[in-house]
Write a protein that binds this DNA or RNA. Structure first.
Lengths: 106, 106
DNA sequence: TGGTTATATTTCCGATAGGATATATATCTC
DNA sequence: GAGATATATATCCTATCGGAAATATAACCA
């Protein structure tokens, strides 16, 4: 839920890779275990961390429990970055104007 | 330098607060120590982590060593988020069009 | 019901993190 | 050169992390 918790969840190479993979669609534990060459308990533990951080959700499909990505907390990171984005994006002002114009802009 | 290292550096409440403060301009160790109610060695250790992660730089001004924010690795996070931004930003397509038009767009 | 597959939980381990205190180093001032 | 101030480094402590292996639970299938 907190930014710190989100960053902590992403601060591990395995979990970062899991998130990237899940961006391509849901996957279950055995698939993830194979893809990342880690034991099933290790993957389950990582998934628990990601879920507690609100980055993924568990769905139930019979015997399997596919995990899927949840956008919200990544978006929170994006919003947090707003405070710094002017440091590198010189076009920010005009970008702001653009977004302010909203859906009406053609 | 790596994304994981960046996230790890941000995955601590004190360091996250340090980064936020430094977004408002450089500050030296004693100022940061006071502002965050931590011992000077603790702050120095945090600053070392942030510097190794490339998030801050040390400048030398006589006796003091003010730290200042470095944008690049935060921008890398921003770029990494691009892979996920479509999950929450419905206006992404039109935003892409806008950016493609570049500096010529009024 | 019994076996098989998918996943969770428990236990144990070595490594690392974050803090405080104590001490070293460097720079300024007199 | 002798304080005094700013910061770095070393040491120690406790807590947590990431992994493997063993075991438990749950769902499917015959």
């Amino acid at each position: 839920m907190s930014l710190v918790q989100t960053f902590a969840a992403l601060a591990d190479p395995t979990r970062l890779a899991l998130v990237s993979q899940l961006a391509g669609g849901p996957a279950n534990v055995s698939e993830l275990s194979e893809a990342h060459s880690l034991s099933q308990p290790a993957i389950s533990k990582h998934l628990k961390v990601l879920e507690k951080a609100g980055l993924i959700e568990t769905t139930v499909q019979g015997q399997t429990r596919p995990r899927k990505l949840v956008a919200n907390n990544l978006q929170q990171v994006d919003l947090w970055l707003n405070a710094f984005r002017s440091l590198w994006d010189a076009r920010l002002d005009r970008l702001g104007d653009f977004l302010d114009d909203g859906e009406d802009l053609q």
